[in-house]
Design a protein around this nucleic acid. Structure first.
Length: 494
RNA sequence: GUCCCCUUCGUCUAGAGGCCUAGGACUCCGGGUUUUCAUCCCGGCAACAGGGGUUCGAAACCCCUAGGGGACGCCA
């Protein structure tokens, strides 16, 4: 059987380093077995999916050197490779399930489901659908659907018994059906959910091995059930560990830069990032730590992947990047620098900010140092201000960071509006409000325009500098908790 | 709370019952090379979560406990 693997990201934000991690292992596995690697866009969430995000995922994977054999932008025999373009196929399959009685219409309102969930939570039970609509008569369903009543389609799940399946790395896993929800397969908006689409697509696209994050382990019973309802064989499952923050929680932008774009803009080399990711949960048989993609393909052994969640360590990544940088000859290094920052696109974004303030071309570097490189290290003294107490400074930084965390877009005007709004709610003039933010972002009281700087730096880096500033001001856990509470009361966050 | 997964230095890891006095790498600390710094080289600190088994022998196999993580959405 031909090895076919896939990466199936949902285009709902910045290209995540966790996606890159999964892509790497799927890619290496496919290449090692002379198989195919497929890119499939999982955009069944119409509200959140964007073409920009999809494009960003393409370029992130390209940048990393992980090329795909089939995908939305590469014709293939099993396309289309965008789930939103496969709707008909899903609807047919849902109909099949309906016909065979493996799925049923559900008319329950959001309110009823919320109440049910709250009840179950209060009773300390696993929250799941209670089967309210399972046994509606065919006639009733027809009438209500015909009347245009909003509904979804859910899958049937056995009430008792257990589901047992194999994971290549963990062996046999058994999950009781009592824990498995009657998953919605078709949403009220007419789109399938991930769970239905992933099963249909993986089968139809002849995916032989699924390498994905451990977070999916609990969904396997739903998928296995669907495979058996359709009478299809299961692909082999290989659940990789999840990348972690320093505090061991799942890697998140809240606590870490997670965007591949961030690492690219910071001047990490794709070779180094791939190499580093390859070291997460896997190692060369001879323990060599520096290796190319080709060397990884040659030596890869899927069974040597370890299952405990590795912490994404910026220090070691930086060290490794340094190794790669030093190995370059001068011309290559120069070429990389040009491609990274001294390219037209980046300069075009930067020049307008500098132009008004410059008297010589050489002013570029001192004006933009904090945008091109790291800003100077801060101390609490840097945040002293005639009109602001430390408590206020901390509050501003904390609230702004919390606001940043909620941003899905990173646009100048929107950021301005939000900061203005926050300043007002904090009862501060924007000018004073911005002071600690200028310091945190640029290391200076006076710098290039603040909101333009944010946009140029990008969300990850901006957030990172705010986090760092809070650390410099030694925000205590207690203080943080209080501020977290406070922030929930603000109108922006409710 | 329920279910599932995981557990070797602070971090990434090696380890397939005797090669383990537990090896390597990052970080940190010392020392050397270097006009400074960095690089580079040498050295050092530092771990088998705890308790029970199985075995002549356990970091490795089994069980329990503890800890960590994940899932519990008309998100993926």
């Amino acid at each position: 059987m031909k090895v076919r693997t896939r990466i199936a990201p949902s285009p709902t934000g910045d290209p995540h380093v966790g996606t890159a991690y999964m892509a790497l292992f799927n890619w290496v596995f496919a290449r090692q077995h002379k198989g195919e690697f497929i890119l499939r866009i999982e955009d069944t969430d119409q509200a959140r999916s964007t073409r920009e995000s999809e494009q960003a995922i393409f370029s992130a994977l390209e940048w990393l050197g992980l090329d795909w054999d089939e995908g939305p932008d590469v014709d293939g025999p099993m396309g289309p490779y965008r789930q939103s373009e496969r709707k008909e196929l899903y609807l047919q399959h849902i109909q099949t399930l309906l016909d065979k009685g493996h799925a049923f219409h559900c008319f329950c309102s959001k309110k009823r489901l919320d109440d049910l969930r709250a009840e179950q939570q209060a009773a300390k039970q696993t929250t799941r659908y209670d089967g309210h609509c399972v046994n509606l008569s065919r006639e009733e369903v027809q009438t209500r659907v015909a009347a245009g009543e909003a509904h979804v389609v859910r899958m049937r799940v056995p009430e008792t018994g257990t589901c047992t399946f194999q994971d290549r790395l963990r062996g046999e896993i058994t999950i009781p059906y009592s824990q498995v929800d009657m998953q919605v397969l078709l949403k009220a908006d007419g789109m399938p959910t991930y769970h239905l689409a992933v099963v249909v697509d993986d089968h139809q696209m002849k995916i032989s091995h699924i390498l994905r994050g451990e977070e999916w382990l609990n969904s396997v019973p739903k998928h296995q059930l669907l495979y058996s309802y359709f009478g299809w064989p299961m692909p082999e499952l290989i659940h990789l560990p999840l990348l972690r923050n320093t505090d061991q929680s799942k890697l998140s932008k809240r606590k870490n830069p997670t965007s591949v774009t961030y690492y690219r803009d910071q001047g990490y080399l794709p070779e180094a990032l791939c190499n580093y990711l390859g070291l997460m949960g896997w190692s060369m048989p001879n323990e060599e730590e520096l290796f190319s993609l080709q060397e990884m393909i040659d030596a890869f052994d899927v069974d040597r992947i370890s299952t405990s969640g590795p912490i994404f360590d910026q220090d070691k990544l930086s060290w490794m990047n340094g190794q790669y940088l030093r190995a370059l000859d001068v011309e290559d290094y120069a070429a990389k620098v040009s491609a990274w920052m001294l390219n037209k696109e980046r300069l075009t974004a930067l020049i307008p900010l500098v132009q008004e303030r410059a008297e010589r071309l050489s002013d570029l570097v001192p004006l933009a140092d904090y945008l091109l490189g790291t800003r100077k290290p801060l101390t609490p003294v840097d945040f002293e201000h005639k009109a602001l107490e430390r408590a206020q400074v901390v509050k501003i930084l904390h609230h702004t960071l919390a606001m940043f965390d909620l941003k899905r877009d990173w646009q100048r005007d929107d950021l301005y509006t939000s900061c203005n709004d926050l300043a007002e709610q904090c009862d501060l003039k924007l000018r004073d409000f911005l002071f600690p933010l200028f310091i945190a972002i640029s290391g200076r009281e006076v710098s290039l325009p603040f909101f333009d700087s944010l946009v140029f730096l990008g969300a990850d880096l901006s957030r990172g500098r705010l986090r760092d500033a809070l650390e410099v001001l030694s925000l205590s856990g207690k203080e943080r908790k209080r501020l977290d509470k406070e922030v929930e009361q603000l109108r922006f966050f409710s």
